[in-house]
């Protein structure tokens, strides 16, 4: 046994297995072989629970290889309120997020092709400050919408966000109006806007661009909702149903067009986009 006692070896193997080999599914609670989970696009092979994706992973899955061109990558948060809370300054949190993710903001925007169809897209990354809607996020979402409008290219936004970014105060709230102004323009110019809701899509993002798509698609089991579950429970002093604020809940209540498994997402987007007649030949032009 070399230098180690038996018990030490066992402990070490357990540690290794927990961290590096197995992953605990948050859906069925089963331990899943990590490589199987990754090979399955971060979806549990046993129960189809959809784990989170980074923006880069989502882009690789969605766009034809090598077609994604990022735009406005240098936009990053400033600290307009000089915000400091109980855990320190906002600037430190931004720096930590930038180091952790290699991203400058909570959304990556750009153009890419889906089975050859050119689109403009915004892909949110939950790891960057909880995917919160900061000024930079709003600016990127709007600029991408404007680009889509100008070039008459369909616009797709993948949301993954806890909501507004408190550290930017009222300016964060204003991003809701700002992004929706961009969506309104797309609608006026009859440019498609497809919203894809992934886990989680809540608060200020749910109450701005995420639920006003021409088509709203959600991944299975994603948390979707306006108010936080705890806030609601305290307000109405009532226990909430188990499926409350999920994709399935909002499909049932008429706010989501379809729930699509991650494996089918690209093909579904392609099928929807194929119904867009750019030429407007049905309008006698």
């Amino acid at each position: 046994m070399g230098w180690f006692s038996k018990s030490e070896v066992r402990r070490d193997t357990q540690k290794l297995s927990r961290d590096d080999i197995w992953i605990r599914c948050q859906g069925c609670r089963a331990h899943v072989f990590k490589q199987d989970y990754y090979d399955n696009l971060n979806v549990c092979p046993k129960c189809s629970w959809h784990g989170k994706l980074t923006a880069a992973e989502r882009i690789n899955l969605t766009f034809d290889a090598g077609t994604f061109d990022e735009m406005n990558a240098s936009i990053r948060p400033s600290d307009p309120l000089s915000f400091v809370d109980g855990k320190g300054p906002y600037t430190e949190k931004v720096e930590q997020s930038r180091v952790k993710t290699g991203l400058n903001e909570s959304v990556v925007t750009g153009t890419g092709r889906i089975n050859g169809v050119q689109v403009v897209a915004g892909v949110m990354d939950f790891r960057f400050l909880g995917g919160s809607l900061g000024s930079g996020t709003g600016e990127k979402i709007l600029r991408a919408a404007n680009y889509a409008c100008e070039h008459k290219l369909p616009y797709i936004v993948f949301s993954a966000s806890g909501g507004a970014r408190m550290h930017e105060g009222i300016l964060s709230l204003m991003q809701m109006a700002k992004t929706c102004a961009g969506i309104a323009r797309l609608d006026e110019k009859k440019v498609p806007y497809i919203s894809v809701l992934t886990d989680p899509t809540t608060g200020g993002v749910s109450a701005s661009y995420a639920l006003v798509g021409d088509v709203n698609i959600a991944e299975p089991g994603a948390l979707v909702g306006f108010a936080g579950r705890r806030v609601i429970e305290v307000t109405i002093k009532q226990k909430l149903p188990d499926n409350f604020q999920t994709s399935e809940f909002f499909l049932e209540h008429g706010f989501i067009d379809c729930i699509v498994h991650r494996k089918e997402m690209k093909q579904t987007l392609y099928r929807i986009l194929s119904y867009y007649n750019r030429s407007g030949r049905h309008h006698g032009t």
């Binding site: 900061g134 000024s135 709003g138 991003q175 109006a177």
Partner: peptide
């Protein structure tokens, strides 16, 4: 509303 917000 396009001009709302501050970023770098």
């Amino acid at each position: 509303f396009s001009a709302m917000g501050k970023f770098i």
